[in-house]
């Protein structure tokens, strides 16, 4: 066979070999078809574990109870019992080590999420005691008069 025909052939074969070698080192061992087959299961298997090891930030009421039992009990016996501590206090993450203190959201906006009046009589929203934000002491934080852990305020 003539040399000018063979030379490009060797070049192509060398390129293919190079690509295969590069692929061997670049594609992880666990990459391939898993689970439900090629259409839905073509992936890197170790990624499942990576997602499972993602950091949990909201630790739940029972975690808060370990140190703040009194507050948790107070809140649990009030009408706000359905609201998780971390909804207002922010995610605990590794509190008390990191963060050492939690930034409590005391703004009106937090209370207005449920207690802003909307004219929706057919909506479950209407079953919650609500206020008109512009009318009801607009310059005052709610927590100055209402205790969020025990919102049933005695009329004074």
């Amino acid at each position: 066979m003539k040399n000018h025909l063979l030379r490009p052939l060797w070049c192509i074969l060398a390129a293919i070999a190079l690509i295969l070698i590069a692929r061997h080192f670049m594609v992880p061992d666990d990459f391939g078809v898993h689970g439900k087959g090629f259409t839905y299961g073509f992936h890197r298997l170790s990624n499942v574990k990576e997602w499972q090891d993602f950091k949990v930030k909201y630790r739940g009421r029972e975690y808060c109870r370990e140190c703040h039992e009194e507050k948790v009990e107070k809140s649990n016996s009030s009408r706000h019992r359905a609201i998780q501590c971390e909804n207002c206090h922010g995610p605990a993450v590794d509190h008390p080590d990191d963060p050492e203190t939690l930034a409590i959201d005391t703004g009106r906006g937090l209370c207005l999420r449920c207690h802003a009046a909307l004219p929706y009589p057919d909506n479950p929203r209407s079953q919650i005691i609500s206020i008109d934000n512009a009318e009801h002491n607009p310059d005052t934080d709610c927590s100055e008069c209402h205790d969020p852990h025990n919102p049933d305020r005695e009329e004074g």
């Binding site: 990459f31 898993h34 689970g35 992936h43 890197r44 990624n47």
Partner: peptide, 23 residues
């Protein structure tokens, strides 16, 4: 998942679709 050209998104055995951020 069907359209992903590189296999970066997939369905786990328990039915959750995940995205591989490295891929």
């Amino acid at each position: 998942v069907q359209v992903c050209p590189v296999g970066a998104t997939f369905q786990t055995g328990d039915g959750v679709t995940l995205v591989d951020r490295d891929w």
